[in-house]
Write a protein that binds this DNA or RNA. Structure first.
Length: 103
DNA sequence: CTTCTGACA
DNA sequence: TGTCAGAA
């Protein structure tokens, strides 16, 4: 199966800001506030992955919903927790719900 | 073009 | 929360 989004692409801050519909300065602000932590090149330049860009879009949407940066940080944290829990459940289900294990 | 910090509305 | 200054 083909994967819709190849999470292999990386962007500079200017491109990431453009894709997310944000100002470059705001991306740096969000990082200072602890909402995002993009990877860095050996030279220190931020390198935003497509996952980071998607995260930025979520940040913008939550901001438009009226949340402040502190609230958004909690939302992103909880979303990650839910994602992790669902993964664990999926794995547990996969391990026990086999085709009639030792009846 | 990019980085950072401090300050301010 | 976002923007600006200033230095690197």
């Amino acid at each position: 199966m083909a994967m819709p989004q190849s999470h292999l692409a990386v962007f500079t801050i200017s491109v990431a800001a453009d894709l997310a519909g944000m100002q470059i300065q705001n991306l740096r602000v969000y990082e200072r506030r602890g909402l995002i932590e993009p990877a860095r090149t050996s030279g220190g330049t931020r390198r935003y992955s497509s996952a980071d860009v998607e995260c930025l879009v979520r940040i913008r949407e939550l901001l438009e919903e009226g949340l402040n940066l502190a609230g958004i940080e909690r939302v992103l944290e909880l979303e990650q927790e839910v994602r992790d829990l669902r993964r664990r459940v999926s794995e547990a289900s996969e391990a026990s719900a086999g085709p009639l294990r030792n009846a």
